[in-house]
């Protein structure tokens, strides 16, 4: 089976390093974007099997990026998991209303839980 590609849109370099290391150990291919604009372009070009998206990003924020991803025919079917440190019910609800598949709060989950969640999609 071909390796699944996960696109991570996240500006915190150290978290990206830790998460991609763990994803690669679990036989995923990892693609990275450090801001929402380039993440959106990468998603259109590479059509990853899943996108991990942060909310507080430089420039366009994650909610807007999610909205664009869900409106674009090329990317609207790709499941998007929000991985943020914002996690009030309002924000969670907003993300789910915009079409996010799941919402994880970084500080609340271990890397193992993030990987388990990714595997469900």
């Amino acid at each position: 089976m071909a390796k699944r590609t996960i696109l991570i849109i996240e500006d915190d370099q150290s978290l990206v390093t830790l998460l991609s290391r763990a994803l690669e150990a679990n036989h995923f291919t990892v693609s990275l974007a450090l801001d929402a604009e380039s993440g959106f372009k990468k998603a259109k070009r590479r059509r990853p099997s899943l996108i991990i998206l942060d909310v507080m990003l430089p420039g366009m924020d994650g909610f807007r990026c999610l909205q664009q991803l869900k409106q674009d025919p090329a990317t609207k079917r790709i499941p998007v998991i929000i991985l943020s440190n914002l996690g009030q019910s309002d924000e969670v609800r907003q993300a789910l209303a915009l079409g996010a598949a799941d919402y994880l709060v970084k500080a609340d989950c271990t890397i193992g839980q993030v990987i388990d969640t990714i595997k469900q999609y």
Binding site: L15, L18, T110, I111
Partner: peptide, 21 residues
């Protein structure tokens, strides 16, 4: 409060994931 929490959570997440690894 949102900002204070976000500010606190960001390094907390980094710490947690490093310790996990």
């Amino acid at each position: 409060i949102t900002i204070a929490s976000h500010q606190l959570r960001t390094p907390i997440a980094g710490i947690r994931w490093s310790l996990d690894t």
